[in-house]
Design a protein around this nucleic acid. Structure first.
Length: 274
DNA sequence: ATAATTGTTCGGCG
DNA sequence: GCGCCGAACAATTA
């Protein structure tokens, strides 16, 4: 699923495809893909030019001068460039039709992703961005910030990292990876982690996000960047999707359990509660 | 055919 | 009002 390294990969591949292009009109084939009024979305964006593509955590921020389109891919959202008149696939829900005849399309098999139009500068007031923690692998994500935040929470560490409220950007894949790397049991209450564990987890988070971004993200189900290419970090995964296979550290078979309704793979031997 | 999957939002409980 | 949990969303795959 697109987590921060995947969304950053999308941002990088998307930028050269859209910056400088002017919208002739917007077509929306599935109204619910827009948070807010679809007609307003179409009307306001007509004639606007893409000036930049930014990102915060897993949110893409398309800049069009005074306007910003906040886009979240959720599980399966994808962007690709085509032409206005290309046949519309049943999973394509929207297109920005450019004045040069090309078109940026949004496709989403699960229909969970959303786009929202806001005034530039107000994007951090929208639901989702408003209550986000600091970004993983950013200067704000200091060891001190992380340590203090963890102390205040009794939630298990897996669910807390998934919640985005303390540190934003990780999803199910990278949470399982960083907990394995730092040998932490996913059910450990956040405030019971030792100082050493916190330090180890902090480094694991930053290193994993950085490395996965370098590899163009992880393609396990269907992730593709805006150029239609897969990521390569799946070759580096140690735990995610490996239930029943031996742990590379101790050789014991990985187990899979559910935590807050989410599949969680870990090693019973290496990731014991302390 | 039924369950599992999965990121985020929302409603409800203490 | 906050922390926390579970259901809901949608469509496909096992």
């Amino acid at each position: 699923m697109p987590e921060m390294p995947e969304v950053e990969t999308v941002r990088r591949t998307l930028r050269p495809l859209v910056v400088g292009k002017t919208i002739d009109h917007v077509d929306i084939w599935y109204d619910k893909v827009i948070t807010g009024d679809p007609e307003t979305f179409k009307r306001e964006l007509k004639g606007k030019t893409f000036t930049a593509v930014d990102r915060y955590a897993k949110f893409l921020l398309f800049r069009l001068g005074d306007l910003t389109v906040v886009s979240h891919l959720r599980m399966e959202g994808k962007y690709h460039l085509t032409t206005w008149d290309a046949p519309v696939d049943k999973h394509e829900h929207l297109q920005f039709a450019f004045t040069d005849g090309s078109s940026l399309r949004y496709a989403d098999v699960r229909k969970f992703g959303r786009l929202q139009l806001v005034e530039t500068g107000t994007e951090f007031q929208v639901t989702g961005l408003k209550n986000l923690g600091v970004e993983a692998n950013s200067p704000e994500f200091s060891l001190d910030y992380f340590e203090k935040g963890l102390k205040k929470r009794s939630m298990n560490i897996k669910s807390l990292l998934m919640s985005q409220t303390l540190v934003a950007g990780l999803g199910n894949i990278y949470v399982d990876e960083v907990l394995w790397q730092s040998q932490i049991n996913p059910l450990t209450p956040a405030n019971e982690l030792t100082k050493d564990q916190v330090k180890c987890l902090h480094s694991a988070i930053n290193e994993t996000i950085e490395e996965a971004t370098k590899y163009g993200g992880t393609t396990v189900h269907s992730f593709l960047n805006a150029e239609g290419e897969s990521g390569h970090y799946q070759e580096k995964l140690k735990v995610y999707g490996k239930e029943g296979q031996p742990c590379p550290r101790c050789g014991e078979d990985f187990v899979k359990i559910k935590i807050s309704g989410r599949g969680t793979t870990y090693c019973l031997h290496c990731q014991k509660r302390v």
